[in-house]
């Protein structure tokens, strides 16, 4: 167990050495917050505001979604793909550790550094745009949903990167899944905006568990009475993807094809 804590610490330290990248990230986030506010302001000025999402909720939604992406876009499992390509996965496998857990800890370490960044970004964002701050109980539900979404997101990334065990190259798959999930997870547009059957389908997809559920809890579209139902759906996706990841990992270990050497 100590080893995994060490992995997370080392990943945190490693990420922190790329200072320029860190500052650029905060800067670009602030710009994106401002642009998104302008976009939604213009859209709301031209159209009748939807019942479920008044203007203020929308600005809050878009801003919090951006802050979340700072954490969720960290992909610790990307290392799987790189290590398979370089062949170093062989030396990793010669260690007495669970590699999925290793990648999770490494990703967590990176995430924690990015989480620290969220604080100044949040302050800037609050200066630029006014966002709603929910009551502590709503915030707690949001935090829990975010945590569940984080793990679902980890498993999804893990599965995508583990494809490299079979194809050695996963860039195209990554790109497609990334596009699809950005749109369908509610990161860009709230899923409540999609009409009829399309909206219902999107809510049923696993991507909704990543962004949509925590965000809709935050802005109050999901009322406290329905928390249980939505969180349960998240847990179901988590268990399903977790099981799938375990199966894929077992199969992958049996077919390690080490590049070179």
């Amino acid at each position: 167990m100590i080893a995994y804590v060490e992995f997370a610490k080392k990943a945190f330290a490693r990420e922190a050495t790329y200072r320029m990248e860190v500052f650029t990230e905060v800067g670009s986030l602030v710009v994106r917050v401002y642009l998104l506010r302008s976009l939604w302001t213009a859209l709301y000025a031209q159209n009748a505001a939807p019942q479920s999402m008044p203007y203020h909720s929308m600005i809050t939604y878009a801003t919090v979604a951006l802050l979340m992406s700072l954490i969720l876009e960290v992909d610790g499992t990307r290392a799987i793909r790189e290590r398979i390509r370089e062949g170093t996965i062989a030396t990793d496998l010669m260690k007495p550790i669970s590699l999925p857990l290793y990648f999770f800890s490494d990703g967590l370490g990176q995430t924690l550094l990015h989480a620290v960044l969220v604080v100044p970004s949040l302050l800037f964002a609050l200066l630029l745009v006014h966002i709603d701050v929910p009551s502590p109980s709503v915030f707690a539900a949001f935090a829990l949903a975010f945590l569940l979404g984080y793990v679902v997101n980890f498993f999804l990334n893990f599965l995508m990167n583990a494809v490299a065990f079979w194809t050695l190259e996963t860039f195209a798959i990554q790109l497609v899944v990334r596009w699809v999930s950005d749109l369908l997870s509610g990161q860009i547009v709230p899923l409540t905006f999609f009409p009829g059957w399309l909206g219902r389908t999107l809510f049923a997809l696993p991507f909704a568990a990543i962004y949509s559920t925590p965000l809709l809890i935050y802005v109050g579209v999901i009322p406290p009475a329905q928390y249980g139902r939505y969180l349960l759906v998240q847990v179901l996706w988590l268990v399903l993807f977790g099981g799938l990841a375990a199966l894929v990992w077992r199969a992958a270990q049996r077919r390690v094809v080490v590049q070179g050497g």
Partner: peptide, 27 residues
Amino acid sequence: VVFGQRSQLYWDLPLVESFELLRAIYS
């Protein structure tokens, strides 16, 4: 295991930190 063509040390870290990480891995 030692591979002449491939290192198991952590590229970005000082050498001694790789050893400390390995200490944790193998307890």
